[in-house]
């Protein structure tokens, strides 16, 4: 296997990440005549590839499978000549005119770089969690909530997104139990009244998930009291983990400006503080992180990459 070889080829655009932002950027870049490569560590789609039913991406009257949508976006970009390399990025050198991206299979050189590495939900880090994804363990109420119509679910977390998820689920599920490791919510006060007026939401305070109990799918969770250590069993049909999200920017610290939470600081024009470097999709500071806003970012990033290549600004 060829490894650690410097690739002499200089791409017009290197796109890091093969989710909806990355492959939309690739589609627009390659259709603008730019020599484009997408560096993806596993397979197309990113976060959406873990969701089997997406109902909030327009154009699919019966919804669409996230993995399939990812592959279609990849094929759509490759149809016009975009390349994909299955490599993991180790480090970046972005300050010069020719940007360097160091990967598990050598160095890639490009005139512009679009970072579309996305974000991932923080996990509970409980045994069997990964295996039960899609079988009772969920990370997105808006995506996967409908599967729990009339059922009992637990939301793990106490921040704004956890409360938001609980409210979405309260309109679908029979009962929603918010499991939080503290004795009060971190969520903004405006939520308090709404929560108190929602009859099917209950709370389990000072509780941490210690075990997932499953046969073919999740049946119950074991909760450990954070003060007494006492464990109780809670029967649920599903859980929604909402303990935050983290951007995939571990190796970008001091390379581009990041905000406190680690997201790349860039406006709606996707321009970062480094010339010729753009941030698209969930990895960027933005209000709404959805497939469609990621795709939109990809198109915008490709546009400004093209402008930079033509005008050098």
């Amino acid at each position: 296997m060829e490894k650690n070889i410097i690739k002499e080829h200089i791409y017009d655009v290197i796109i890091v990440g093969g989710g909806p932002a990355g492959y939309t950027a690739a589609l627009y870049a390659v259709r603008a005549g730019l020599d484009t490569v997408v560096l993806e560590k596993l397979s197309a789609g990113g976060q959406m590839a873990m969701t089997t039913q997406i109902d909030n991406y327009p154009g699919f009257e019966n919804g669409v499978d996230g993995f399939d949508l990812g592959e279609k976006m990849q094929l759509g970009a490759e149809r016009f000549g975009a390349k994909t390399e299955l490599v993991e990025v180790n480090s970046y050198g972005l300050s010069g005119e020719i940007k360097k991206v160091s990967t598990s299979e050598g160095e890639f050189l490009g005139k512009t770089v679009i970072i579309a590495t996305g974000a991932k939900p923080r996990e509970l880090e409980v045994h069997k969690e990964k295996e039960l994804v899609g079988r009772g363990v969920n990370y997105c109420a808006a995506c996967d909530g409908m599967a729990y119509k009339g059922k009992t679910v637990a939301v793990i977390g106490g921040g704004n997104s956890a409360v938001g998820d609980a409210l979405i689920l309260s309109r679908i599920a029979k009962k929603v139990i918010i499991v939080h490791r503290r004795d009060s919510l971190r969520a903004t006060k405006v939520y308090n009244d709404i929560l108190n007026n929602t009859s099917n939401i209950e709370f389990m305070w000072n509780s941490q998930v210690s075990e997932l109990i499953a046969e073919d799918k999740l049946k119950a969770i074991k909760l450990k009291d954070t003060h007494t250590g006492e464990e109780v069993l809670l029967e649920v049909d599903g859980i929604f983990v909402s303990v935050g999200r983290k951007p995939e920017t571990e190796n970008l610290d001091s390379i581009v400006n990041l905000d406190k939470a680690g997201y790349i600081v860039a406006g709606e024009d996707t321009k970062t503080n480094v010339k010729g470097v753009f941030a698209a999709g969930d990895v960027r500071t933005k209000a709404l992180r959805q497939i469609i806003t990621a795709a939109a970012d990809g198109a915008i990033a490709a546009h400004y990459a093209e402008e930079y290549l033509v005008e050098g600004k």
Partner: peptide, 8 residues
């Protein structure tokens, strides 16, 4: 679902 992501 994760097995599917590994296939490519």
């Amino acid at each position: 679902t994760y097995c599917r992501r590994i296939a490519p």
